[in-house]
Design a protein around this nucleic acid. Structure first.
Lengths: 345, 345
DNA sequence: TGAAAATATGTAAGCGCTTACATTTCTCTC
DNA sequence: GAGAGAAATGTAAGCGCTTACATATTTTCA
């Protein structure tokens, strides 16, 4: 009946085979595998040795069909190539593994359409729950997920106004804290290189944070020289060149993330500017690259690993039928290194 | 009968519901979804609109059980935190998505035991095929995979002596090429900082490559000052300190990868040594960090993305029942940047 | 010591889909 | 316009597992 069966696929032992060899019913074998405590030790040993001798391993599809869950959790991130996501996903995966769950990943390349598509794909692939980055997306997607009964956890952002479960940090407040330090040092003419804000609430919040700080220091937030550009070292460099070509170039350039900041730093050097004497530069994320450049980058440390790990635990609870957890806000920390100083007087 | 059904899980529409609404049999609905060409246009339209109006989406477990495949491909890498793997996996995932496959990932943290465990997990999770890094592993694992009929593709290594399908590059030859350049410049006292070679054929091949070059230049390969250390900037730095504390410190330090090299570079600076005048340093991989340090790292470029993409295509073919492909060898390229020069005379 | 309670195991009904095979409905061709 | 062949659709048998419920066995304690 099934062609694959007869030519390529090997004929694997089934639960029934194990039951026959062990001389018990299939129910007992199933219980041995899923809740061993329910089975008498002697029976269990007999079953387990039958399992071993046959090289049995449960069929995934059958198990998913009967149990109505797959033990698989999906995550959709913009890209694995960004160290912050890679780091968080690594921790997320390690933690899932401890709970016996497996990770299904997809990347959106920062495109809402691709993300929507990937969400449907992962759900169709049996993800029991989903980890997403940021709140920003078509409400229809949340409706779809609710209809399918797939729990969702939003990470990377903390916004008490959003009711859904989330774990993240306050991008706006963190960036405001950094910008405040910049302003305290006397900078008044500030440039900012941000990731593209459209469809990216983290980027928007960081921009808002800078404006908050400007306002606090009596500077017109509209005076912020803002450039939005996709995530890459080269784009950071290019944006920096544009900022420094302005009639009155900024004395400090706040970057939305470390990668853009490293690009800015390279461009500053290329333009013959000394950092931080001629121009200050700051980053956000505190990834490895921030400590490797010279001078090392002043930035905001984000607990990516902790976030990944905690996200895994929350999601496992949610799949297990736990109540929707309250939004979690993690703390960030300013890292003062070599790229920030008072402006030339 | 199933408690979940009655409390938390929503009651989703099934194929049978769609069939009823569209007034056709379940077989026709199934065909509409899987091989639309077999169904008359009018019928198909009727079915598809029923699908849309019900918000139907196939049940993953049922489909996997009946079709005997999941459309899911597994990959096990040492860690996502290493940019080279992140980059390759990103390309791998993008390419899989184009073929309608989904990626299941796990990481081994460079531990053979964890890797073996993860391999079993991914197979149990229904991976139709597996991508692994390097050939080195217990033969029992290959036997297990063969027994389960799961195709495997080894990446990151090219070794014609290994018959199994693989895509990679010749680590030994590539490193020999770089070491040859170092020796040509007149270096005779060479240090090497390598990843831990045990259970890592790539690291072993790179060490062998350096020894090949030494031999070619009439230097005793045993004179190589070799330190093996786990992958991290800090470990690279620490190893560099040990090398430079030797009675006769090397004039050139060849590193097994860029991350170790960046650590070495930092330590050199810390020790007051100027690179490359006082000591030359080389890396391997050509990741972003290599171009960001100052001076930029002389290294070997590896086509990670291309490897990831090609690996995806090969695996999809293998799952599709294609014959085992011949091993593929990709080309690497030497990148001469600022950290390599002739030794002080 | 015997009935009730607890524990261990068995029975069998699905879970929702794919697909071999059977049947019906067209489309040709002579 | 009849018969052969092709195309479209239907029928129904599983795929291998989990689990509600039934039954058998052991323990507990008055």
């Amino acid at each position: 009946m099934n062609r694959r069966l007869s030519d390529t696929a090997p004929n694997l032992p089934t639960l029934a085979d194990v039951a026959r060899v062990a001389g018990v019913s299939t129910a007992t074998v199933s219980r041995c595998l899923n809740s061993p405590a329910q089975v008498q030790t002697a029976t269990r040993d007999r079953v387990l040795s039958a399992v071993a001798s046959l090289g049995y391993s449960p069929n995934f599809g059958a198990r998913a069909l009967a149990a109505r869950r797959t033990g698989t959790i999906g995550a959709i991130i913009p890209t694995m190539e960004n160290a912050i996501f890679a780091r968080a996903i690594q921790a997320f995966q390690e933690e899932l593994h401890l709970s016996g769950q497996t990770l299904l990943v997809a990347s959106s390349s920062y495109s809402p359409d691709i993300e929507a598509d990937q969400i449907r794909t992962l759900v169709a692939r049996g993800a029991d729950a989903l980890l997403l980055i940021g709140h920003d997306r078509d409400p229809g997607i949340y409706a779809f997920l609710a209809q399918r009964g797939v729990p969702v956890l939003v990470s990377w952002a903390f916004d008490p106004a959003q009711a859904r479960p989330s774990i993240g940090f306050d991008n706006r407040r963190a960036m405001a804290g950094l910008a405040d330090e910049v302003l305290r040092l006397g900078h008044r003419h500030i440039g900012m290189i941000s990731a593209v804000a459209m469809g990216n609430d983290r980027a928007r919040d960081r921009i808002a944070g800078v404006r908050d700080a400007l306002r606090d220091h009596g500077v017109d937030p509209a005076a912020l020289e803002l450039i939005e550009t996709p995530y890459s070292i080269a784009n950071g460099a290019e944006a920096m060149a544009r900022l420094m070509a302005l009639p009155t170039p900024p004395t400090a350039v706040i970057c939305g993330n470390d990668v853009l900041a490293v690009g800015a730093l390279q461009m500053a050097r290329q333009l013959g500017l000394t950092v931080p004497q001629d121009v200050s530069i700051t980053g956000f994320d505190d990834i490895e690259i921030a400590t490797v450049v010279d001078p090392a980058l002043t930035t905001v440390h984000v607990p990516h690993r902790e976030m990944g790990r905690a996200a895994a635990q929350l999601l496992v609870d949610m799949v297990g039928g736990g109540a929707a957890p309250a939004p979690v806000c993690l703390e960030t920390e300013l890292c003062f290194r070599g790229t920030l100083a008072a402006p030339r007087t």
